[in-house]
C-alpha cells in the first residue's frame, strides 16, 4: 500500500484546476518575451557591428571656391583614405546620387550649380574598430579644408539606448509575470488551507508537523506548475519556431537571421524550471505562514 492517496484532496478544487493554465500562460509569455529580447539584442549587436565597421566622410562646399575645387578636395580625401591601413573600401558617392537622394525633398529641377551640396565618401573598414577614427578625422581636416567624419556614433547611441530600454522593459514584464504567478499560487494555497482546515487540524492533533502539512501543498503546487510549464513551454517553442520560419521566408536583408545561440535556448529552458521552483517555494512559505496561526 503506498502513500499515493493524497492526504489532502487538493487537486479536486477549482483553484487547482485553474492554476495549471495560469502558470502555463505565464511560462509562455515569459519565454516568448525573453526570446524576443534575446533576438533583439543579437540584431542590435549585428547592426552595431555594421555601423562600427563603416563611416562616412563629408566634404562641404566653401564659399568663393573655384569651379571644380570641391572635386579636387574629394579626390585628395579619397586618396588619403585609401592609404590608411585597415580601410577596405572607399566609395566616392557621385554628386548625382546625392542629388537623387535629395530629390524627394528639394524637387526635380535641382542643379548642382544652384545649390552647393556636400559630397560624401563611404568608407568600409576591414573590421570594426580597425581604424582610430578620432585620429583620422584630425589628420584629414588638418590636410583638407571642409572635411567632417561621421562615425555613426549618433545612430549607435540611439540603437544602444533603444536596446537598453527594450531589455529593461522585458525584464520588468518578466518580473511582473513572475509576481502574478506567485500571487496566483498564494491565492490557491490560502484557499486550500482554508478549505481543508478541519483535516489539517486533525493532522496536527495526531502529531503532524507544519512541514508535513506543507509538503502536501508543495507537492500539489509542483504537480500543477509542472503541468503548466510543460504546456506553456511547448507552446512557446512552437511559437518561436513558427516565427523563425516566417522571418526566414521574409528574407529581409535588413535583419541578420534571427536565431538563438545554444546558451539562449538553455536560458529559455530555465523559465519553466524556475516557474516550478517559484510555485513550489511560494506554496511552502504560504502554508507555513498560514499554519502558524493555527493551534
Amino acid at each position: 500500500m503506498s502513500d499515493s492517496q493524497a492526504v489532502l484532496p487538493l487537486s479536486r478544487e477549482s483553484s487547482s484546476r485553474l492554476l495549471p493554465w495560469i502558470i502555463g500562460i505565464m511560462v509562455y509569455l515569459g519565454a516568448v518575451i525573453l526570446a524576443g529580447a534575446m533576438v533583439l539584442a543579437a540584431a542590435a549587436a549585428a547592426w552595431n557591428d555594421e555601423l562600427t565597421a563603416a563611416f562616412t566622410v563629408q566634404i562641404t562646399p566653401i564659399d568663393g571656391e573655384e569651379d571644380g575645387g570641391i572635386e579636387t578636395r574629394v579626390r585628395n580625401a579619397a586618396k588619403m583614405l585609401r592609404n590608411v591601413p585597415g580601410v577596405a573600401i572607399v566609395n566616392v558617392v557621385p554628386a548625382e546620387t546625392t542629388m537623387a537622394a535629395l530629390e524627394p525633398w528639394l524637387g526635380p529641377n535641382l542643379n548642382a550649380q544652384d545649390l552647393p551640396l556636400p559630397r560624401v565618401i563611404d568608407v568600409r573598414l576591414e573590421k570594426a574598430g580597425a581604424v582610430d577614427l578620432a585620429a583620422l578625422a584630425k589628420q584629414l581636416s588638418g590636410d583638407i579644408e571642409g572635411v567632417a567624419v561621421d562615425s555613426h556614433e549618433y545612430w549607435r547611441g540611439q540603437i544602444e539606448s533603444l536596446v537598453r530600454t527594450l531589455e529593461l522593459l522585458a525584464t520588468v514584464v518578466i518580473v511582473l509575470i513572475g509576481f502574478s504567478a506567485m500571487a496566483a499560487v498564494v491565492f490557491a494555497t490560502r484557499s486550500g488551507v482554508a478549505v481543508h482546515r478541519d483535516v489539517i487540524e486533525v493532522l496536527h492533533l495526531i502529531g503532524a508537523t507544519d512541514q508535513y502539512v506543507a509538503q502536501q501543498f508543495q507537492r500539489q503546487a509542483f504537480r500543477v506548475s509542472l503541468m503548466g510549464s510543460v504546456f506553456g513551454g511547448l507552446l512557446a517553442v512552437i511559437t518561436l519556431f513558427g516565427f523563425g520560419r516566417l522571418l526566414a521566408d521574409l528574407d529581409a536583408a535588413l535583419l541578420p537571421a534571427p536565431s538563438l545561440a545554444p546558451w539562449e535556448w538553455i536560458a529559455l529552458g530555465v523559465v519553466p524550471i524556475l516557474a516550478c521552483l517559484i510555485a513550489t517555494m511560494t506554496a511552502r512559505l504560504t502554508v507555513i505562514r498560514a499554519l502558524r496561526q493555527m493551534p
Partner: peptide, 22 residues
C-alpha cells in the same frame, strides 16, 4: 476521520506523519 481516505490510510496517518517506513 478523513472522509476521502480509506480506512487503511486513516489508521496509517499517525505512523506516516512520524515518518514510519511503508
Amino acid at each position: 476521520l478523513i472522509q476521502h481516505l480509506s480506512a487503511f490510510d486513516n489508521v496509517a496517518l499517525p505512523l506516516r506523519v512520524s515518518g514510519s517506513r511503508e
